[in-house]
Nucleic acid binder design. Structure first.
Lengths: 214, 214
DNA sequence: ACAGGGTTCAAACGATTGTTTGAATCAGGC
DNA sequence: GCCTGATTCAAACAATCGTTTGAACCCTGT
């Protein structure tokens, strides 16, 4: 069979995940990837039909791993209280701040896409109808008034994930000079608590009477 | 004097602002800018010492215009109730969703930077100690418990601005197929109310007892 | 031993990026 | 009128990007 093919495929995917997570898709060059993977230039085009094809493959893997392992897990979601589930989810989204394992890299990749979705990514979510956003929507729905419109719930979910991804993307920036945040476990716990608590406290009032627009 | 110089300078700046707002700094090429401005290739390097120099100049202008005109205005901030001030600020941040005027373009430029700060931008905020974030920090502080640490207030401000900039950046994406949001004035009002109300409802509980980390 | 297909390789391709060049053009001062 | 400095211009530069090429390589089946 094609033993060696699968081997270098994995080599490439591993290197690509690391780079895509670190810098995002656009800023990661093919030459960076093949250098890190210690394979030839043409390998990506041979095995994945180009950079886009590689990214699509990587997205597929990341999505599978995340949905099977996430705090979005349907079973776990029901066994926990809404507050616990939300806290777990936020903690999961902030995971790349603390750990550099594979799962964290996948989350970070999606954090880049939430900043500026690439063409490949759009094609990807077009195929996966059950977007990773739907999990977040279910999560916030439990805090929103029961008659909240789907659109508002979607916006709330986007806001929730956006708050996490800002920190994931700019981790290094916030650690540096004007901010000087020491990003350790106590800090991330604090941050996750902050985001979670603001959501818990605020979401129930999301559909109150219209504010004066002035 | 150098009349014609200032004229083409403004031509370039105007075109650059439009493109930087639309696509961000990195994705806007020098050739796009000079074509839109109807000036020569070399003009940018002659007048601004390169693309970076142009961007720095544009950032300076945008920052001045925003601080003098923003909902962050110190006088206006004190004359309004905390709730009104926050709602005004959020509405201001979401302005690019509705209008395409100059002010909206400046806001959108900063929204791109909040996603992935460029080198030029980092150098810029290093020089402007009173970051545009400090206004947001003051705003959220009025809802946080009085003894909240500066670090937590800063995180809350980042979260607040992040929620707005997600929609500003991805306006077109959310209008399209998987989401199909019609981004008109009622929607933006609704969204601004949502973000504001979640913040008002949640921020006071930001420093409650530690949540169980599980 | 040989042929053939899957895989690797170094090199080049064409497109795009930001920047530089050197001549051409224009203005105003002596 | 001519010189000088500022400004514009078309063209090229060097670097990087993703992709393609065609020969070399290696393993397998016959």
């Amino acid at each position: 069979m094609t033993r060696p093919a699968e081997y270098t495929r994995n080599l490439i995917i591993k290197a690509a995940v690391a780079l895509f997570a670190e810098k995002g898709f656009e800023r990661s060059s093919v030459r960076d990837i093949v250098t890190k993977a210690r394979v030839n230039q043409a390998a990506i085009n041979y095995h994945f039909k180009g950079k886009d094809g590689l990214y699509f493959e990587v997205l597929k893997i990341a999505f599978e791993r995340l949905t099977e392992n996430a705090g979005v897990d349907a079973g776990e979601l029901k066994s926990l209280s809404p507050e616990q589930a939300l806290r777990r989810f936020v903690g999961h989204q902030l995971r790349p701040l603390l750990f550099q394992d594979e799962l964290s890299r996948y989350i970070r990749m999606f954090a880049w896409e939430s900043a500026h979705p690439s063409k490949v990514f759009r094609k990807f979510i077009a195929g996966n109808t059950t977007s990773y956003l739907s999990g977040a929507v279910d999560l916030v729905r439990r805090f929103l008034p029961p008659d909240t419109q789907e659109r508002a719930a979607l916006c709330a979910a986007i806001c929730l994930m956006g708050q996490c991804s800002v920190f994931v993307r700019n981790r290094d920036l916030f650690a540096q000079d004007p901010f000087r945040m020491t990003i350790d476990e106590p800090f991330v716990d604090e941050l996750a608590d902050l985001i979670t608590r603001v959501a818990i406290g605020g979401l129930p009032h999301a559909e109150d009477a219209r504010l004066t627009t002035a």
